[in-house]
């Protein structure tokens, strides 16, 4: 210990330019890395929200987040003040447009004023156009989902508020009759949402009479499952066509080298 002391007392040499340069570079790289990680983590966090309904014609959420320039032209174009831009504190990807159907649903204007004004194509006109004409009925903002436990129609109380409110009544929502076994003499009139027709406009959610809506719109990606490629509807000609492109990959394992019967009886020789 004591031998070291004189050395530390020695006056420090000024740093050489070379050393200074290297140290400064190291500082720069370090700070950029630090900042980069914090920044990335933050951006990743704030864009993680999935439960968000976009205006009609919105492209896939990943692409939407990188394409939307957050200008609010769609918000200004909406005649019903349906669309909002996410504010700090809303816990939604900042500045991007969304709507809350329970407050103000999308009224499905036939001329879709919010879409053509989009300067970046984050709202894609082509996706809401059929035969060269704007067609709001093919918009896909989300999908209405019914909670059959809180929907009073499923209790047997007559209510068709959502059915009546649906702008594509009879296609997106239908009423299904069935016998109410509890009373034996009444009918259930249960609403059913059809995912191929529903646009997710949310008029049903707005109209729902329960305290918290029993029918509500979710982004399609959240609302729906996916059967995957392994299951094919053999009775459906169109679905069956998917087999045509199926490749013939055979998986060979130890067991499958033998014939099926042999493989089943394998290891049983000792019994006899």
């Amino acid at each position: 210990m004591s031998e070291n002391r004189p050395e530390t007392k020695k006056k420090k040499q000024p740093l050489s330019d070379r050393r200074k340069f290297i140290l400064n570079m190291a500082r720069g790289v370090g700070l950029v890395t630090l900042g980069g990680f914090v920044w990335s983590a933050y951006v990743d966090e704030v864009t993680a929200s999935q439960l968000l309904l976009r205006p009609p014609g919105a492209i896939k959420e990943d692409d939407f987040l990188r394409t939307c320039i957050k200008c609010g032209l769609c918000v200004e174009a909406c005649p019903y003040d349906t669309l909002l831009l996410a504010k700090p504190g809303d816990n939604k990807p900042l500045g991007t447009p969304y709507f809350i159907p329970r407050d103000i649903p999308c009224y499905m204007c036939p001329d879709i004023p919010c879409v053509p004004v989009c300067p970046t194509g984050a709202l894609d006109e082509a996706s809401v156009t059929t035969d060269g004409k704007l067609d709001i009925k093919i918009a896909d903002m989300g999908l209405a989902v019914i909670d059959s436990e809180s929907c009073i129609a499923f209790w047997g109380i007559q209510c068709d508020a959502c059915y009546r409110a649906c702008p594509i009544l009879g296609e997106a929502i239908t009423i299904e009759y069935s016998k109410n076994e509890r009373t034996g003499k009444h009918a259930f009139l249960k609403p059913v949402v059809h995912s191929d027709a529903c646009t997710g406009c949310g008029l049903c959610e707005r109209a729902c009479v329960t305290e918290k809506p029993a029918i509500f719109v979710l982004p399609r990606e959240v609302a729906q499952g996916r059967a995957g490629d392994y299951y094919i509807k053999g009775w459906d000609k169109d679905d069956e066509k998917r087999l045509e492109n199926a490749s013939e990959i055979k998986t060979t394992t130890e067991i499958s080298k033998k014939s099926a019967v042999d493989s089943l009886n394998d290891g049983l020789e000792d019994l006899y």
Binding site: Y42, T47, R66, L85, K87, D90, P93, L94, G95
Partner: peptide, 24 residues
């Protein structure tokens, strides 16, 4: 990240957008 990095933190657009569309 495949995302407009500064646009999600920019106080410039946050403030300007806030004044026009609601500040939060």
């Amino acid at each position: 990240m495949g995302i407009t990095a500064f646009e999600f933190i920019s106080p410039i657009s946050m403030v300007h957008r806030g004044i026009v569309f609601g500040l939060g």
